[in-house]
């Protein structure tokens, strides 16, 4: 048992306690441990340092190291709450928590607002939305005339920017999302319900089992 014990301790050494992370999120302790299996695999894909770099995050998302993606970068930056340029295990679990089907809608709404508020001013500005639209069109190799893009922006801001000041604030976003619930679809990952079956090997590294024995 001594050998197994030291191996288990090594696996989570330096990372936040799964029991504490479970208490802060929609995940059970077993699910946090299963997420550690995923975290290990992503964080060791380029440099095995127990942290996820932007390059490793992108590699896990796109299976290649192609050019930077604005949207993947936004998610990475929001997971990286301490702005270290790296995601630790706690950041990873708390970030994914927002995407759990059971996470509160308000957390999903706040996260999505930050996602689109590129410069972090507390407002989603028309210029930011245009920048994201152009980035999306570029990455999907679609072309739209500038007047078509402006027309899409006009329509969106007529609906969302109710006080017509040219930017969307948090309360306007809340109302807009309420009318367009599909906007929060990207904020829910059904996979997170089945994380323990996707990564069953967590059982062999379980801290909880270790405590029980």
């Amino acid at each position: 048992m001594g050998c197994f014990h030291s191996k288990v301790k090594k696996k989570l050494r330096g990372h936040e306690d799964p029991v504490v992370l479970a208490s802060q999120t929609a995940f059970s302790v077993s699910e946090v441990e299963a997420l550690f299996e995923l975290f290990k695999s992503i964080s060791s894909s380029v440099i095995d340092d127990g942290l996820i770099s932007k390059e490793e995050f992108q590699l896990a998302l796109f299976k290649n190291r192609k050019k930077e993606n604005l949207f993947a970068n936004r998610i990475f930056d929001l997971f990286d709450v301490k702005q270290k340029g790296l995601i630790d295990f706690g950041d990873f679990v708390r970030g994914l928590h927002v995407f759990h089907p059971n996470a509160p809608q308000e957390e999903k709404m706040n996260f999505s607002f930050k996602l689109y508020d590129l410069d972090g001013t507390g407002f989603i500005e028309r210029q930011e939305v245009k920048q994201m639209l152009i980035a999306l069109l570029c990455e999907s190799e679609m072309k739209l005339a500038d007047e078509t893009i402006e027309s899409i922006l006009d329509k969106t801001f007529v609906e969302a920017d109710t006080n017509q000041d040219g930017k969307i604030d948090k309360s306007e976003w809340q109302i807009f999302v309420g009318r367009n619930p599909s906007l929060l679809k990207i904020m829910t990952l059904p996979y997170l319900r089945d994380i323990t079956t996707t990564f069953p090997s967590f059982v062999f590294h379980s801290e909880v089992d270790e405590v029980a024995t």
Binding site: F62, A72, N180
Partner: peptide, 24 residues
Amino acid sequence: TCLNAFDIISLSPGFDLSSLFEKD
């Protein structure tokens, strides 16, 4: 052009974290 800008933006694969869970 009756599309909503955010619905279009959300189509980016960069926002689709489900690929994190796909094993090679």
